[in-house]
Design a protein around this nucleic acid. Structure first.
Length: 878
RNA sequence: GGGAGCAUAGCUCAGUUGGUUUAGAGCAUCUGCUUUACACGCAGAGGGUCCGCGGUUCGAACCCGUGUGCUCCCACCA
């Protein structure tokens, strides 16, 4: 069969994925083997996979495939997250484009649209996961709004309510005026911005309530909130304001009379030393208000426009109103000064608008008791975080200072809060209305109304590692949960350590008394070449499917892994995908070479001959393979996947292709020995197995191309790793060094590749060189090899370690070149020897250093001296 | 304001509890090559004050201090 010039990924990837699926290799059911479980961090249904996902899924697939090939019952559960705010926003937008206003829809109608949307777009991510080659169990796809999942979330809410951990109350929360919902603290992102600080003059009130000529100046960033002022606060120790005790001032523009209060909270050195207090719109002011029993005047509507309570500019957006109010304040002489001021503003993670602190009645989860076991699990090492040094402190700090979690959202897309209110405002919490009915016969069920809000998305995803196995909804006799939980490793981005990772640990410890996973592997953020975050606005976020079409999934996986040191950010560059493509093409060509040998099958001789030197080549590569296999094993255990890939890459490209194959390659049209052929095939198969977790498609393809096989590489079990013979490896290194040095000499003396040379070796270890003579001949294009003890006139001298090599040919030699090289080397060696001698002559070194270190230095001395002797002898012969 | 991490070749990074040569790899660069697997290739080469300074030690890229420069997280000063 004629093989294509280059590997064509489009011809194989789809074929093998279908094959694996048909064979049900990725489907898992509990059995006698140990389990290896990974639950996918469920991507948002609305989205497409970006490069960050690609990295995460690739890492997970590598770990799962490796486990599947190493005796584990590997189970990777796929799924997606309903992502309440993000999805609802998209559906609202979609409806708007159709001319439908959400406000005119009933809840049920809206949810129908939302589910339609999910059906339409939710499949995109699954297709991408498939194209990337991910070995997920498609029978286990879970969605956080599936029936059982929905019930689990409700059950947990009710349970935590009964335990007194969930409560309802009016608090100051973060409000998203665009999505018109409450947010948790974690959903607010702070950004540094330059704003303005306005100095405003408030007139004081006379005893009789009329306006005085005197005034007090406050500083504020938010003049549009002055209508909500209910006090002015100064520091009691500030002498400037000592005369204001018991006085009142008037809010400009609306002339409401407000008291002047005294509290040490105010910093006299900041701004004007006087603070306007607006309890409805600032968390500090809110706390001051509670302390001083101030009135709360909420001057904003839920959409961020000014409310009736503001009295003026009603209905104007907060930022528009700000401009108008500044103008009016200036006109009326209240604005004294405006100054540049840099501050931090909170933005909604989802909608991007500036978050408004707002007093609102919401549901909260008490976090302190939940946090303790979660903290312990990580601090005591039951769960290991990679890379640990970076995130352990962050994790610890957050849990030690955790605040209650606002879990209610003013949305429709999500699990509706299972709380009902009677007409007196009493709250009843139950999983279903039926349950409520049976427990409260006195209630007029028909008059109850259910809480209209839904739960935070993360209040569902924190159950993920349990509920994908129905662990919450059907906890008793749940064999799947017993078998698969805890999962092996969680692979995710470091940005959701609080949102998700910490909370999953909390939920796991609370409901299973067991950690949800043993290891957490944080991948870095994927950035572009210049180190910028990937974003739609910059247009620097590539389309995954386009990349796969262009380079193939294997190259995408290779490219993203090769440039992804554990835990560091990854600077994504398409050229690394090219490297991946070049690599699989290299594999393809090695296959072509071996296939050529197969086609000359009749020429394959049964026995190996001593002269061929192939015994050495085979033995060397076998040991090299074992050495690398054990190195890679260690790297897997430390999650150094990028290192592992680099190591395998180099083993294949350098050791296998550049050295081994060249060593055993027969001359043009020459036969190949059967044992060499068979061994080579076996090596190639082993290499494909080693590489398979990283590049599953081409490795499976080559595995089947090498010889007809019934089995598939994807489930082939790794054999035992044998220990490597160090002396053979060392001889291999020597051989490589000799070849390189001789090739370098040829290059420097401008030998044409076809020009042959006669090689003479001056060595005390002929037994090392005898078995590799034929390899040398092939690799440096020599016509003969001889041994010598004397100096050879007119030849190029090359010194490698303790041995001297003479290149003899008809060509006129420029001995100055050789001499320069030797002198340079000599200088280096002498410098080195000097440093070694300096150490050895240092009495304190000899007295303090460990014996093996001293021996090592002595060995270095010997080697350097021998080498200097060799070089000097070589120079003398010139 | 508090905390964490990082700084090694042009770029991205390795460098294991301080001694395996006078620091390595990949990519990029340069030189030569139509060598019948592969130019998506082959062979070879150049390239580093291990951020600065000080200290500990017989010995420091590695440990300590300090300075500088990046990055990230957390925090209610208008």
């Amino acid at each position: 069969m004629e093989l294509s010039k280059n590997y064509i990924h489009t011809a194989t990837e789809d074929k093998w994925y279908k094959h694996w699926i048909n064979k049900r290799y990725f489907n898992s059911t509990p059995d006698d083997r140990p389990s290896f479980t990974i639950v996918i961090p469920p991507p948002n249904v609305t989205g497409v996979l970006h490069m960050g996902h690609t990295l995460n899924e690739t890492v997970q697939d590598i770990l799962v495939r490796k486990a599947r090939m190493s005796g584990f019952n590997a189970c990777w559960v796929p799924g997606s997250d309903h992502a309440s705010i993000a999805t609802e926003a998209k559906v609202v937008q979609m409806l708007k484009e159709k001319g439908i206003d959400k406000n005119n829809l009933r809840r049920e109608e809206f949810l129908k649209y939302a589910f339609e949307w999910k059906e339409k777009y939710g499949g995109i991510i699954y297709n991408q996961i498939e194209r990337l080659g991910c070995s997920v169990d498609w029978d286990r796809v879970t969605f956080t709004m599936d029936d059982h999942y929905y019930k689990a979330v409700i059950k947990v809410f009710v349970d935590l309510y009964k335990k007194g951990l969930v409560y309802r109350g009016a608090r100051m929360i973060n409000w998203d005026p665009s999505a018109k919902t409450a947010l948790s603290d974690e959903e607010v992102e702070f950004k540094d911005v330059t704003g303005k600080l306005y100095h405003l003059r408030y007139f004081l009130s006379e005893e009789d309530g009329t306006t005085s000529d005197n005034c007090i100046t406050i500083a504020t960033q938010r003049p549009e909130t002055i209508m909500g002022d209910t006090a002015i606060c100064v520091n009691p120790n500030d002498e400037r304001f000592a005369n204001l005790k018991g006085k009142f001032a008037f809010v400009p523009l609306i002339n409401r009379r407000i008291p002047i209060i005294f509290d040490e909270y105010v910093d006299p050195t900041f701004g004007t030393g006087a603070l306007k207090v607006t309890p409805a719109h600032d968390i500090n002011d809110y706390n001051l208000g509670l302390k001083h029993n101030l009135e709360v005047v909420d001057t904003l509507n839920e959409d961020g426009t000014l409310s009736k309570a503001a009295q003026i500019y009603i209905g104007e957006d907060r930022f528009t109103a700000r401009k108008m109010i500044i103008a009016e304040l200036e006109e009326k002489g209240h604005l004294l000064k405006e100054e540049e001021y840099s501050t931090r503003l909170g933005y909604s993670q989802r909608s991007g608008v500036v978050v408004e602190p707002r007093i609102s009645t919401q549901w909260f989860l008490k976090m302190k008791d939940m946090a303790e076991p979660a903290l312990k699990a990580v601090v005591e090492g039951d769960i290991n975080i990679h890379p640990g040094d970076k995130f352990l402190a962050t994790y610890k700090y957050w849990l030690e200072n955790v605040k209650d979690w606002c879990i209610s959202r003013q949305l429709w897309w999500g699990q509706q809060i299972p709380a009902w209110y009677d007409d007196k405002g009493n709250v009843y919490v139950a999983e279903t209305l039926e349950e409520l009915k049976s427990n409260h016969s006195e209630l007029l069920i028909d008059s109850l109304t259910q809480d209209v809000d839904v739960l935070d998305t993360w209040f569902s995803s924190w159950l993920w590692p349990m509920e994908v196995f129905n662990g919450i909804s059907s906890p008793t006799n749940n064999k799947e949960l017993d078998y698969y939980y805890p999962s092996a490793v969680l692979v995710t981005g470091q940005d959701i350590i609080f949102f998700w990772v910490a909370r999953m640990i909390m939920a796991g410890m609370h409901y299973e008394q067991k950690k949800p996973f043993s290891d957490v592997y944080f991948t870095g953020m994927v950035r572009d070449k210049q180190g910028r975050k990937m974003s739609k606005q910059l247009g620097n976020s590539p389309d995954l499917l386009e990349l796969i079409d262009k380079y193939g999934a294997d190259a995408v996986r290779f490219g993203i892994m090769i440039s992804s040191p554990a835990g560091n950010d990854l600077l994504f560059d398409e050229s690394s995908l090219e490297q991946g493509r070049n690599f699989y093409n290299k594999l393809w060509n090695a296959l072509k070479l071996i296939k050529m040998w197969e086609e000359r099958k009749s020429a394959i001789e049964p026995n190996i001959t001593a002269e061929s030197n192939n015994t050495f080549a085979i033995s060397w590569f076998e040991n090299r393979l074992n050495q690398v296999r054990s190195e890679v094993e260690v790297m897997y255990s430390q999650f150094k996947l990028s290192e592992a890939l680099k190591t395998i890459y180099s083993l294949i490209w350098d050791d296998f292709c550049s050295w081994y194959l060249e060593w055993v390659k027969p001359g043009f049209e020459q036969p190949i020995e059967a044992i060499v052929y068979n061994k080579t095939i076996q090596f190639f198969e082993d290499l494909m197995q080693l590489l398979h977790p990283f590049m599953p498609f081409i490795t499976e393809e080559i595995y089947h191309m090498l010889q007809n096989r019934e089995d598939d590489l994807c489930v082939k079990q790794f054999g035992e790793i044998k220990s490597a013979n160090q002396s053979i490896l060392k001889e291999g290194e020597l051989l490589k060094n000799v070849i390189s040095a001789l090739r370098d000499a040829r290059n420097k003396n401008q030998f044409k590749p076809k020009e042959t040379i006669r090689l003479h070796i001056d060595t005390e270890n002929k037994s090392i060189f005898r078995p590799i003579e034929n390899i040398l001949i092939k690799q440096i294009n020599a016509e003969s090899i001889a041994y010598t003890n004397g100096v050879m006139q007119g030849a190029i001298i090359v010194a490698v370690e303790k041995d001297k090599f003479y290149i003899e040919s008809e060509k006129k030699i420029d001995s100055a070149l050789t001499k320069d090289d030797l002198l340079k080397d000599l200088e280096h060696q002498k410098g080195f020897l000097e440093s070694v001698l300096k150490k050895l002559s240092n009495e304190r070194f000899v007295a303090n250093a460990k014996p093996e270190v001293i021996n090592l230095e002595k060995k270095k001395q010997e080697d350097a001296e021998a080498r200097i002797k060799t070089i000097e002898e070589s120079l003398a012969g010139l």
